[in-house]
């Protein structure tokens, strides 16, 4: 029982991280129609920015996380506005642009920080007793912040003018423009919002997991997995699938060990594609 609860809490905490990543990925795809291959890169960058602030500049960790969010959002905004925006209707070209950015980001970080993992620790440690189980404090903190970020994102999207504009552009870009919505203003914001979320996740999670130039790849793979599972372009689907993926991973690693969990998930995704190609909560996939 204790083991079960432990796995459930780890799974939820993983799920919340995956949800932040997948929600950002889905925002970019849903609104811009762009597959963001650089998503793992922004996660990584968030981790390294936070690390640099803490280790090199002596900034307190919470402030370092905020700086990481600002830096990744700013880079996303600039990248969208000056590069992606020029080819935003060509899905293959935008994909290649984000791939190029990812290669530059990960190689740049490799050149700067070297191939070894960084000594980056979460400032809080120790465990809290929850009923029969002990849960690492840092996991709970990350879970709480991730959930808060998800709620904040929901408020932005469903309770503000900006969110209304973004959803309108995702639903029908041509008509939204004819109503006076400006993609040139809103697309960079959407991209920055999403990359900022990836940066936040990186800054929060890398001190617990690991921070090395390779950490972007599995993040990208998990984001893909999640959005396929949830149905491309569906925010609710992405969030739901993220928690499912987190729980499956946690339970598999507790009860089976090794990489079986990941393998099960991948095969699950393939099966899902056979029987329900639009994902769990997917709607019709937008053109291309």
């Amino acid at each position: 029982m204790a083991q079960f609860l432990q796995a459930a809490i780890i799974g939820l905490s993983l799920g919340a991280q995956y949800a932040l990543l997948a929600l950002g990925f889905t925002l970019i795809f849903g609104i811009l129609g762009v597959v963001n291959f650089a998503h793992g890169g922004f996660y990584m960058l968030g981790g390294y920015v936070a690390y640099s602030c803490v280790a090199l500049l002596g900034v307190p960790y919470p402030l370092a996380v905020l700086i990481a969010v600002a830096a990744t959002a700013a880079l996303g905004w600039v990248f969208e506005l000056f590069l992606l925006e020029r080819l935003v209707d060509d899905h293959l070209a935008t994909l290649m642009l984000t791939l190029g950015l990812y290669l530059i980001l990960s190689n740049g970080l490799l050149q700067t920080f070297g191939p070894l993992a960084m000594e980056f620790r979460f400032p809080v440690s120790g465990a809290i007793r929850l009923g029969p189980v002990y849960v690492p404090q840092e996991n709970l903190i990350v879970l709480a912040i991730c959930l808060a970020a998800i709620v904040a994102l929901w408020v932005v999207l469903y309770r503000t003018d900006l969110g209304r504009g973004l959803r309108a552009l995702a639903d029908d870009r041509a008509v939204a423009m004819a109503q006076g919505l400006r993609p040139k203003l809103l697309f960079p914001m959407a991209f920055a919002l999403a990359t900022g979320l990836a940066g936040l996740t990186g800054a929060l999670v890398t001190p617990i997991l690991a921070l090395s130039p390779g950490v972007g790849d599995p993040v990208l793979a998990t984001s893909f997995l999640t959005v396929i599972l949830g149905g491309l372009g569906s925010l609710q689907g992405a969030a739901l699938a993220a928690f499912a993926v987190g729980l499956v991973e946690a339970f598999c690693s507790v009860y089976f060990g090794g990489s079986i969990g990941a393998l099960i998930l991948f095969v699950l995704v393939l099966l899902l594609l056979v029987f329900r190609p639009t994902g769990l909560l997917g709607r019709t996939v937008r053109g291309a």
Partner: peptide, 23 residues
């Protein structure tokens, strides 16, 4: 502008559709 075939924003609520027109 009220387009041919209506083209409301299908996933958005009625209120949000109207407000999107006054973005």
């Amino acid at each position: 502008y009220s387009p041919e075939g209506r083209r409301v924003f299908p996933t958005m609520s009625v209120t949000d559709n109207v407000l999107a027109g006054a973005f």
